[in-house]
Write a protein that binds this DNA or RNA. Structure first.
Lengths: 346, 346
DNA sequence: GTTAGCACTCGATGGTGATGAGTGCTAACA
DNA sequence: TGTTAGCACTCATCACCATCGAGTGCTAAC
């Protein structure tokens, strides 16, 4: 945020944002001058408000309504005015005990994280499982579905199971497949899918001359098995919770939001952006090119296991979200999930 | 439907339902008497309408609006008045060519079916994958996650991959696991999970005395692996399409419907009911105890592979659905999917 | 049994005026 | 020069009211 605001303007902006967060309604100068101990008359507040509107932090739905913070206003509030308190130990304990991961598949555990996030924040919970390309290889199995059609099953170090169907030029015998399987399971252990891909294409180029026909085919097979993108998993929970918010009362708006939430692709793009940085990221309104979540904010944080198996989790809610509460929850949850992932992947 | 209606009443009921389906608005006596070549004056139509209302086939939102069919009215219409035409060959061809299943995993294929169903019907598509207990065993793999925690992976004959984590009392060696795996893969081939469960519990009881400690443990392990219920998969597509319908304009109603669509459990119960009978089933409004889809209708049909691996697919839309179009589509799609399933599972 | 006629109901539409929250502007004040 | 009181103005909201018209129920005549 480039602009500087003097202390009084900051106080008033903060007061407006806070009032708006709790009321969901435009706030007027009187309310500010009375409730918040600023000792300023409504008229003074009005002057400041006019300035803030000029600068783009506020806007008014119409002449005689109060002011509503713009996404720029929220942004300034979060960057400069909001002090995010840490969770108390008891809150941390409560959050920790919400999760009973033991004996769960990773998929189910992540889904559960989404549910809990949605439950405690009262907004919509989002969890994106670690991208396939960044997961660490543990085991591969081939299964002959018919001649030339193979089902490939991978298991990642964290216990994520992915499968897909590939077509092969060669009609492999069970014995050949077993050999290939053993070879791959030995060689690839502990590498990420991305590393494996790079390595494979290198090897194929280098060994083209030396390798036998069969070996070359085997390499091609494993390349095919690992190359094609497997759909990344996004878990969305509590979509209807977002409807409780008064600002989402118009059917058109509801439709837009649900279309976004239904399209995994859009969510993946959104969460991918959040994944690049460390720690909690906040996307406000349409600020992020993503007109998709106009009027909404996304608070998200990446989580990771030992070897860069990165996923993202977060909460989508109205722009008017209770940031001071949701931010530490998302933050701590990401740490919690990271810790569990590290423990499990040993 | 027990009641009998004379020809004229039937004609008028049919006219009202048809008008209401296309307009989504209460229909009055005048419109009926004019548009449909019944040669009856509005007054006569009114008399009949009053009778129909008395009998529960119609209701009026208020005194001076027209009449709207009740769920009983729709029911009568579908049972006695609607003649469902078969799809023309070109329509069948078009539908068939919408699907490109080859090289797809079963999960993806079913998801795709939902998408297409939703697309051509303009309502919400629903597909429930074959229940785990009725799928035919093809292969099982065990993977040691940590001491005593095992990841079990099943593959069904149709290529459906399921996995889950189980805890075992014994810390198996890789060699032991391999033996168990081989044994199970040989013995269980071609049986449904349900058959396997029955067989296993029989064997455990019978062989308790004779078998060695290790054998008993192995049996227990496989029982644990196959007993616990794996979540059944429901694919929902085009949820937002239902919002296009004029009757779903109130936020409360939208919320209710989306809550139902979000809760897989409720959908499974609903689709399970539809699965018991052969062919297309129709649930109208809240008629089916399921207040969950009040105001909606569900048109569904089971599909199956060679050996009773039964799933269900269908369409959820407003009560005022275009039944004459959707019913044959659902019917034919179910046949199509069954055919593909049978071909694939050989 | 059918229909024309008619009084009646009731939602939808649109105009009017009062209300009140909130603003911008100006002039006075410290 | 910054702050404030005062005041005219704007505009959404609401209640009220008259009008309109689609549609009904009832009755009497055909």
């Amino acid at each position: 945020m480039s602009e500087d605001l003097n202390q009084r303007s900051q106080n008033i902006l903060e007061a407006i944002v806070k009032d708006y967060i709790s009321s969901a309604e435009p706030v007027g100068s009187r309310a500010i001058s009375r409730k918040h101990a600023l000792n300023l008359s409504p008229a003074t507040v009005r002057n400041v408000m006019a300035d803030l509107e000029e600068m783009g932090f506020l806007c008014s739905p119409h002449t005689s309504a109060g002011r509503v913070p713009t996404s720029k206003g929220f942004h300034y509030y979060i960057d400069s005015l909001l002090e995010v308190r840490d969770l108390s130990d008891s809150e941390k304990a409560r959050l920790t005990s919400s999760y009973q991961f033991k004996g769960m598949r990773l998929e189910d555990a992540l889904q559960e994280v989404g549910r809990v996030l949605s439950g405690i924040s009262s907004y919509t919970g989002l969890v994106m499982a670690p991208r396939f390309s960044s997961t660490v290889f543990r085991q591969i199995e081939f299964l002959r579905l018919s001649h030339k059609r193979l089902l490939v099953i991978f298991v990642s170090k964290t216990g994520l199971v992915q499968n897909k169907v590939i077509e092969s030029d060669v009609d492999w015998t069970p014995h050949q497949l077993e050999n290939i399987t053993n070879y791959l399971n030995q060689t690839l252990h502990g590498l990420t899918i991305q590393e494996i891909r790079n390595q494979l294409s290198d090897e194929i180029q280098q060994e083209r001359a030396r390798a036998s026909e069969l070996q070359q085919q085997a390499m091609k097979l494993s390349q095919a098995a690992l190359n094609a993108e497997v759909e990344d998993n996004v878990y969305v929970s509590g979509t209807t919770r977002i409807l409780e918010q008064p600002e989402f009362s118009s059917p058109e708006l509801i439709k837009k939001i649900f279309q976004t939430l239904e399209s995994k692709q859009q969510l993946i793009e959104l969460l991918d952006q959040a994944q690049t940085a460390d720690g909690v990221q906040i996307f406000i309104g349409s600020q992020s090119q993503h007109h998709a979540i106009e009027g909404c904010s996304l608070i998200s944080s990446p989580f990771s296991g030992k070897k860069g198996a990165i996923g993202t989790l977060g909460v989508i809610g109205p722009m008017r979200m209770d940031y001071s509460q949701v931010i530490p929850i998302v933050d701590f949850t990401a740490q919690l999930v990271s810790r569990v992932l590290e423990r499990e992947s040993e």
